[in-house]
Simulated scan of single mutants.
Amino acid sequence: MSKKRRIISLLTMILTLFTLSVNGQATSAYIDKSKVDNGVINVNYNSSKSVAVRVSKGNTNYDYILNGNNTIPLQSGDGDYIISILENVEGKKFKQIAKETVTLKALNPNEVYLQSIQMINWNNEMNAIKKAKELTKNAKNDKEKATAIYNYIVNTISYDNDKASRTSSNYIPNIDSTLKAQKGICYDYASLTASMLRSVNVPTKLIMGYKNDIKEYHAWNQVYLQDTNEWITIDTTYDAGLKNGNTKVTMIKDIKEYKIEKQY
């Protein structure tokens, strides 16, 4: 949870679009659809300028700035997605470089929540992922995996008030940096939680929006438990704060206490 400012990230970015031709370039050259059955695409467009990607399905839009891991999720269910690649002109103004419709027919609707994506960036060589496998090696089911990782994060990671006051709008978490520093903002907590759980085959969403007793923009997680076929809400940031105050916490939260604006 942010103390002095909201974690706006790219979620509220307003892109002013200038419709230009693609100059003969095939849009498909920029969009790798080899993993679309898993609910993700990869965007490859190199430029000295800032490049954004807008993913639209119906009335829902998600905006991303290309930065390192350019794997982008298609998390709004099966159907047609319009992928627009945009290059910065000045300020928050972008021109359209390419546009393509991608059709998703997922083999498993939860598969997208197991992938490494831009804001939940992980691989098996990362220390955080090695730690997740260590923590869950004796777990008998998904709930035990979730509990082990939840307990570790809540008891190990502290909230970083200074970082909350100076984080830029295009900040992307690095889970190994969070693990090493043992502190972070709500975005860091939620990204670390999602990465660790995804790495041990537990579908996990990173959610952004509001909690009923927090004024600032917030990030938390929803976790799918295959054994009971349910999504549960967990909030490692919130509970880490309560733990520091010696307040009793419970892992599973009431979804009615949260207002979801975006999910990844």
Rank of each mutant, 00 (worst) to 15 (best):
R5Q: 15
S9W: 09
S9A: 14
L10T: 10
M13Y: 14
I14E: 15
T16G: 10
L17Y: 08
F18E: 15
T19A: 11
T19G: 14
S21W: 11
N23P: 07
S28M: 13
A29M: 13
D32M: 09
N38W: 01
S47P: 12
S48V: 03
S48F: 11
K49S: 15
K49C: 08
K57R: 07
G58H: 09
G58T: 11
D63W: 00
I65E: 09
N70I: 05
I72W: 04
P73I: 00
P73M: 09
L74H: 00
Q75A: 14
G79Y: 06
I82W: 03
G91T: 09
K92E: 15
K95W: 03
K105C: 12
A106R: 05
V112G: 07
Y113H: 11
N123D: 15
M126P: 00
K130V: 01
A132Q: 03
K133W: 11
E134L: 10
K137A: 08
A139W: 04
E144F: 01
T147H: 12
T147C: 08
I149C: 06
I149D: 02
Y150N: 07
N151H: 01
N151M: 04
Y152P: 03
D162Y: 14
A164M: 04
N170C: 11
Y171W: 12
S177L: 11
T178R: 03
A181V: 12
G184V: 06
C186Y: 04
S191Q: 05
L206P: 03
M208I: 07
G209D: 06
I214G: 03
Y217K: 07
V223L: 00
Y224K: 06
L225Y: 04
D227R: 11
I234Q: 04
I234T: 03
I234W: 01
I234D: 02
T237Q: 04
A240E: 01
G241N: 02
K243I: 08
K243D: 10
K248I: 14
M251D: 10
I252W: 01
D254H: 07
K256P: 06
E257L: 03
E257T: 05
Q263C: 08
